[in-house]
Amino acid sequence: MSGQATIDAMTAAPPAVGAAVPGAFRRKLPGRIVLLVVFGFLYLPIAVLVLLSFNDSGLPTSWSGFSTRWYVALAGNGDILRAAWNTLVVAVFATLISTVLGTLLALGMETRRRKSNGLEALAFAPMVIPDIVLAVALLSLFSRLNLTMGLHTIVVSHVVFDLAFVCSVVRARLKNFDYSIVEASRDLGASGWTTFWRITFPVLLPAIVAGALLAFTLSVDEFIIAFFTAGAGRSSITLPMQIYSMIRFGITPEVNALATIVMGVSATALMISQWLNKEQVR
């Protein structure tokens, strides 16, 4: 038996909890009830938010009749649409970079022989530094270096805190990692690279996906650091910056309309890709 085959056999082993365990069926009901309740809580305000996108009145808190006029207004509002696009660009880049750096940092920290308090503090710091301190600090730095600011400087800044969150999730997963399978793989002659992709990566994958989702979600909603590091121009305005600036004269349901579309499109895209996947498997 070659080393490669053994490794394949090893990684194929652990199935999802419950899925392969006999008797799981009987225990499905409580799980379903839990999911129903939690998702009900998560989507209750979303239902209100969607409803308000059809509110004729511009006031965010009182209902005055059904209307689709905010969707029409949105279609003609280039500012909001561009801001939404910028937000997506920033979040995608920040997520990609922070997921790679955060995962590597987690691997580095968890495989060290001796824990270093300095390193631990460094990895925690981005989560506890008040946003305003980081915002002022980065803007001072970028201006001192005479950098031209724009979406790229927002990405650089968002990676700082995103990376800490990714690192933290991946480290939590690594705490239960069975390092003996790595040793076994090495003993069987697999290279470090093969071992990483065949053994370590698949085990870490759920944490990496979770970390990336976290980073993306944080970046999409971040306002103050983006405002400070975006530069002065109009072309680097992100959606949270646009929405917060509407506070003084009232946030219109256009924003609700946009959120409704964003969530609707994302959900549809996911369902289609799932369906295509299934078709392929067949």
């Binding site: 939690v38 989507y43 979600t217 909603d221 929405i243 506070i247 994302s266 959900a267």
Partner: peptide, 11 residues
């Protein structure tokens, strides 16, 4: 579970 949070904090 994360989809609702791609809307916006304020709204």
């Amino acid at each position: 579970a994360v989809l609702p949070f791609w809307s916006n904090y304020l709204i």
